[in-house]
Amino acid sequence: MNPVQYRRAESVEDAFPGAQWRLLGGGTNLVDLMRKGVEHPAGLLDVTGLSEEIAASDDGGLVIGAAARNSAVAAHPLVRRRYPMLARAILAGASAQIRNMATVGGNLMQRTRCAYFADAAGSRCNKRAPGSGCDAIGGFTRYHAIFGASPECVATHPSDMAVALAALDARVNVAGPGGTRTIPLAEFYRLPGDRPDLETTLGADEIIVSVAMPASPFAGASAYRKVRDRASYAFALVSVAAGVTLRDGVVDDVRIALGGVAARPWRALRAEETLRGTRPTDEAIDAAITAELASAEPLPGNEFKIELVRRTTVAVLSELRGTPA
């Protein structure tokens, strides 16, 4: 690890330290990547002293300060009551120790766990060193994308929390030298294209201030299911965040977001569209997610994710169907 400076931000305005600095939340990903030689910031600006407030908003939604610890969000009574899918997603991630450290802002900004990305000494990676090549393609692709990848990068975003936030139509409030703005979570992450090093639409001098969630109609009928290689404490092969409301036995609204399949939480919009207004029979759900998967492009070694997404989505939604909304 290179020598590095450290200081704590006193305010949001204080939190624009310059290009060579990085904002430090819990450090659970950044410190590890610095040790691995993937990240080389000149300075670390600790932003955990900024807002960690979790508060109900007037519209029946919730605003979560960017410095709120993952564990605090998952344990918060309003989150558990109104957004159980989010609580479950956070609790599915990492370990209790890491959730106690990690912040909401840091969770959104974490980098891919692609092994070739992490191997700064020995592997090529376009995300780490643009133009150098991608050793993941043709290599171990179990944790890699089936949606939205490019010939330059096939990495996935590892967050569980973000998958639930995507399903809940969360918005990311950010601040920069020019003022504040709001980015819908659906527009927060970029697909890799030919610039996999650019991962979000956050400006280089912008900071996440909070995450806002609108009122959710899915509190009683939502779920987050994570499928992984170990029973606990492993990243998702595939995860499904879903919520559904029915009216007269017909789907009124439905949200499906998939984790572990793309460089961003993958909102299955086509599946949602297909399901809306239909009776959610197993066949209908299957047809809907199959329609979504028509655009999937698996890699040699992760073809199984197609079937896994299909089955898991059907199982999650058919269970929710039976849950009173």
Partner: peptide, 13 residues
């Protein structure tokens, strides 16, 4: 009082 990982915590934090 909360459990954390000291390896990923900088002492300064």
């Amino acid at each position: 009082g909360r459990r954390v990982l000291s390896c990923l915590t900088l002492a300064a934090q």
